[in-house]
Deep mutational scan, measured.
Amino acid sequence: SISSRVKSKRIQLGLNQAELAQKVGTTQQSIEQLENGKTKRPRFLPELASALGVSVDWLLN
């Protein structure tokens, strides 16, 4: 799922939720909701993929 991929990649990069949120241009709460499965397809998906160094396709599939 996107939530597990985001969380595992974030941890692999040594980032906390607030640091990832800053790179993406969103809030820590938005990252938390995404990782908890409350958000399925965030509006900041391209920025998120870029910050994590992955493709949008990788996040979604």
Rank of each mutant, 00 (worst) to 15 (best):
K9T: 09
S30I: 13
L15P: 00
R41E: 11
I31A: 02
P46C: 13
K7I: 11
R41Q: 11
S1I: 12
P46A: 14
F44R: 06
E19D: 12
E47L: 10
N61K: 09
Q33F: 12
A51H: 05
S30E: 15
S3I: 05
E47M: 10
L52D: 00
Q29E: 14
E19C: 06
R10C: 03
N16C: 07
V6R: 03
K7R: 14
W58L: 02
R5P: 02
S30L: 13
K9Q: 09
S50I: 14
L45D: 01
W58A: 03
E47S: 10
E47I: 08
S4C: 13
S1K: 09
V54S: 03
E47T: 09
L34P: 02
T26Y: 04
R5L: 08
P42V: 14
S8C: 15
E19F: 04
K38T: 15
A21G: 05
Q33N: 15
L48K: 00
N61V: 09
I31C: 03
Q12V: 07
K9P: 01
Q28P: 12
L20V: 05
R10D: 00
Q22L: 13
N16L: 07
F44L: 06
E35C: 03
L60T: 10
L52R: 00
G53Y: 05
G37L: 04
L15A: 02
V6Y: 03
P42A: 09
A18S: 13
A21K: 02
L52F: 04
G53D: 08
L20C: 03
T27S: 12
R10A: 01
E35L: 03
E35N: 04
Q17T: 15
I11P: 00
D57Y: 13
S50N: 13
S8L: 15
E19T: 07
N61Q: 12
E32D: 10
G14A: 06
T26C: 14
Q29N: 11
K23W: 08
V6M: 08
W58P: 00
Q33T: 08
G37E: 06
R10E: 00
I31P: 02
P46S: 13
T39Q: 10
N16F: 04
S3K: 06
R43P: 14
L34V: 13
N36P: 02
G14R: 07
T26G: 04
L45Y: 05
L45I: 10
G53Q: 09
A51K: 04
S8Y: 15
G25Q: 06
T27I: 06
A51G: 03
L34W: 03
E35H: 01
L60P: 00
V24Q: 01
K23N: 06
